[in-house]
C-alpha cells in the first residue's frame, strides 16, 4: 500500500473525525451543566419540578439513544402543528438528542456525588454562617466534582463511541467515511484506521481526566 493511497483514505476520515469531535465537545460541554441543573431539580422541594425531572431522567435513560436520535432528526418535523417549525439541520438535531440524553446520565452521576457528601459538611457550613449558595458553591460542589470525576470520565468515553450513531441518521462522521472507503475499495483497513482514531481520542480523554483527578486530589 502506497503512502498516497493511505492518505487518500485517512484524509476524508479525518474530515469525518471533525464532526465526531465537534459533536463530542458540544455534547459534553452542554450536557454536564444541564445534568447538574436536572440534579438540582430532582432535589427540589417543589414536588412538580422534582417529579418532572425524575420523569425526564427515567424516559431518557429508559429508551435507546438511537431511538431518540431518529426521533429528533426525522420525527420532530412530523409532529402535528409544530412540526414544520422543527425542521432542524440533521447535525444540530442529533447534537440536541445527545445533549438531552447525556444530561440525564450526568444528572444521576451528580445525584450520587451529592449523596456521598456527609451531612456534617452542611452543618459545619451552617454554624459558620455560610449562606446556602456559599455552602453549595464553596463546600459541596468541589467535593462532589472530585467524587464524580471517575464516572464522568467513564461517560465521556462512552460518548465518544456513541457519536458513531450519527451514522444511522446519515450525518457524515468518522465511521461513515470509513464505511464508504470499505465499500468502494473492498478493503478492511479503514475500519482499523477508524478504530485507531477512536482509541486516540479515548486515550486523550483518559490523560486529561487522570490529570484532573491528580490536580483535585486532597487525600
Amino acid at each position: 500500500m502506497t503512502y498516497e493511497y493511505f492518505m487518500s483514505m485517512l484524509i476524508p476520515m479525518l474530515e469525518g473525525a471533525k464532526a465526531t469531535v465537534l459533536l463530542f465537545v458540544l455534547a459534553i460541554v452542554l450536557s454536564i451543566p444541564l445534568g447538574f441543573l436536572l440534579t438540582l431539580a430532582v432535589r427540589s422541594s417543589i414536588k412538580p419540578i422534582s417529579f418532572l425531572a425524575q420523569t425526564y431522567i427515567y424516559v431518557m435513560r429508559g429508551t435507546p439513544l438511537l431511538l431518540q436520535l431518529l426521533f429528533f432528526v426525522f420525527g420532530l418535523p412530523l409532529l402535528p402543528v409544530i412540526g414544520e417549525y422543527l425542521v432542524l439541520d440533521r447535525f444540530v438535531a442529533a447534537t440536541l438528542a445527545f445533549i438531552l440524553n447525556y444530561a440525564a446520565y450526568f444528572a444521576e452521576i451528580f445525584r450520587g456525588g451529592l449523596l456521598s457528601i456527609d451531612k456534617g459538611q452542611y452543618e459545619a457550613s451552617q454554624v459558620l454562617g455560610l449562606s446556602k449558595w456559599q455552602t453549595t458553591v464553596r463546600v459541596i460542589l468541589p467535593q462532589m466534582f472530585r467524587v464524580t470525576l471517575p464516572p464522568i470520565a467513564n461517560e465521556s468515553v462512552s460518548l465518544v463511541k456513541d457519536t458513531a450513531l450519527l451514522y444511522a441518521v446519515a450525518v457524515p462522521e468518522l465511521l461513515h467515511y470509513a464505511q464508504t472507503v470499505v465499500n468502494r475499495d473492498f478493503t478492511i483497513i479503514p475500519f482499523f484506521i477508524a478504530a485507531g482514531i477512536y482509541l486516540l481520542i479515548a486515550f486523550g480523554l483518559t490523560v486529561v481526566f487522570k490529570y484532573l483527578e491528580r490536580k483535585l486530589q486532597y487525600d
Partner: peptide, 14 residues
C-alpha cells in the same frame, strides 16, 4: 455561637 462536632466536619478539599 461557634460549634465543634464529634466528627470534626473539616472541609476535606481545603
Amino acid at each position: 455561637m461557634g460549634m465543634v462536632f464529634q466528627q470534626f466536619n473539616l472541609f476535606p478539599h481545603l
